[in-house]
C-alpha cells in the first residue's frame, strides 16, 4: 500500500466517520441525561429524507438542512413525550421511531416524487460542496505534509468540519458548564437534581432535543453531502454503529471521536478492498462489517475495560409525592 492509497483511505475514513460522529454525540447527550436512545437510526433516516427532499425541491441545501433538522427534532420530541412525559419504555419508543422513519420516508418519497422511494438526484446548490482550505492547492506539492493537508484535511463539506468541532464543543458543554453538570447529574441521580430545585423534565427534554438536532445534521450530511439524494434505508445501520461507538467510547466525547474514526476506517477498508490478505489468511469483507458490533459486545462484556452506562439510564423519573 503506497502513501497516496493510505491518504485516500483516511480521507474516506473522515467522510464515513462524520455521520457516525454526529449521531454518536447525539446519543451522548441523550444517554448522559438518562434517556436511552436506540432511535438514532430513525432520526437520521428521517432527516436524510427531508433534507434531500427539500433541497431537491428548492435547490437550496441550507433549507434542506433546516428541514432535516426539523424532522429529526419532531421525532426527538416524540421520544421525549413517550419516555419523559408519559414515562414509557425508552427502548420500545426508540424501536417505534426507527420503524416510523423507515416507513414514512418511503411513503412520502413515493407520494412526492414517484421514484420508488427515492428523491431526485441533487445537483448544484442542492448539495453541500467541498470547502478548500486556504493554500491547499499550492501546498499540495510539499512532500508528506502537502498531500495530508490538501487531500485529508481540506476538501470536505462544511458539515464534516462542524462534526469534528462538535467534539470539543460537546466536551466543553458537558464538563465545563453548569448546564452540562446538571445534565450529567440528571443521568446519574435525578432525585438529587430535583431536590436542588432544578427541573428534571426540562433538562431531559433539552438533552433529547440536542440529540435530535445532531441526528438531523447527521442525516442531512448523508443525503446532501456524502451522497446526492435520498434512497430507501440509506442509513444502513449507521445509527446502531453510532450507538456501538458510544458504548465503545464509554459515553465520553473525545473517545467517541476515536471510536467513530475507528469504525469509519473499518467501513472505508470494507468499501475499498473486498477481501484482505493478511499473512496468508484471507479476511472476508463480512468480517469487517461485523467488527464494530463484535468489538462493542467485547467492551460490553467487560473483558477489556468495563462500559458502565449512566446510572439512571432507561428509568423514567417519578417525582416523590
Amino acid at each position: 500500500m503506497d502513501f497516496l492509497t493510505i491518504i485516500q483511505l483516511l480521507d474516506s475514513t473522515v467522510r464515513l466517520a462524520t455521520p457516525l460522529l454526529l449521531a454518536c454525540l447525539a446519543g451522548l447527550f441523550s444517554e448522559r441525561a438518562g434517556i436511552f436512545d436506540i432511535g438514532l437510526e430513525g432520526k437520521m433516516l428521517m432527516a436524510a429524507f427531508f433534507s434531500a427532499a427539500v433541497a431537491a425541491v428548492t435547490g437550496n441545501v441550507w433549507l434542506g438542512l433546516l428541514a432535516g433538522i426539523g424532522s429529526s427534532l419532531l421525532l426527538a420530541g416524540l421520544h421525549g413525550v413517550a419516555s419523559i412525559t408519559f414515562r414509557g419504555n425508552q427502548l420500545i419508543s426508540g424501536v417505534a421511531i426507527n420503524f416510523l422513519a423507515a416507513g414514512m420516508t418511503v411513503l412520502i418519497a413515493q407520494d412526492w416524487f414517484q421514484q420508488g422511494g427515492r428523491t431526485p438526484s441533487l445537483i448544484g446548490g442542492g448539495r453541500f460542496t467541498p470547502i478548500n482550505l486556504p493554500f491547499a492547492e499550492s501546498l499540495s506539492g510539499v512532500p508528506v505534509l502537502g498531500p495530508v493537508y490538501a487531500e485529508l484535511l481540506s476538501g470536505h463539506s462544511i458539515l464534516v468540519y462542524i462534526a469534528f468541532l462538535a467534539v470539543p464543543a460537546t466536551w466543553w458543554v458537558l464538563f465545563r458548564t453548569r448546564f452540562g453538570l446538571r445534565l450529567r447529574a440528571v443521568g446519574e441521580n435525578p432525585a438529587a437534581v430535583d431536590t436542588a430545585g432544578v427541573s428534571v423534565v426540562g433538562l431531559r427534554y433539552a438533552a433529547v432535543l440536542i440529540c435530535g438536532l445532531l441526528c438531523g445534521i447527521a442525516g442531512a450530511y448523508l443525503a446532501t453531502a456524502l451522497q446526492a439524494g435520498f434512497v430507501k434505508d440509506m442509513t444502513a445501520g449507521r445509527g446502531f454503529i453510532a450507538l456501538a461507538a458510544l458504548i465503545f467510547a464509554k459515553w465520553r466525547p473525545w473517545h467517541a471521536m476515536g471510536a467513530c474514526l475507528l469504525f469509519g476506517l473499518l467501513q472505508a477498508i470494507a468499501l475499498r478492498f473486498q477481501n484482505i490478505e493478511l499473512g496468508g489468511i484471507t479476511i472476508p469483507v463480512q468480517a469487517m462489517d461485523a467488527l464494530p458490533y463484535v468489538l462493542t459486545v467485547v467492551i460490553l462484556a467487560g473483558f477489556v475495560g468495563k462500559a458502565i452506562p449512566p446510572r439512571a439510564g432507561g428509568e423514567p423519573y417519578v417525582k416523590e409525592r
Binding site: Q90, I92, A96, I97, F99, L100
Partner: peptide, 13 residues
C-alpha cells in the same frame, strides 16, 4: 408505519 404506530401506542405511549 402501522407496525411503528402499534409499537408506539401499545408500548411506549
Amino acid at each position: 408505519v402501522i407496525q411503528a404506530l402499534v409499537i408506539l401506542f401499545t408500548g411506549a405511549l
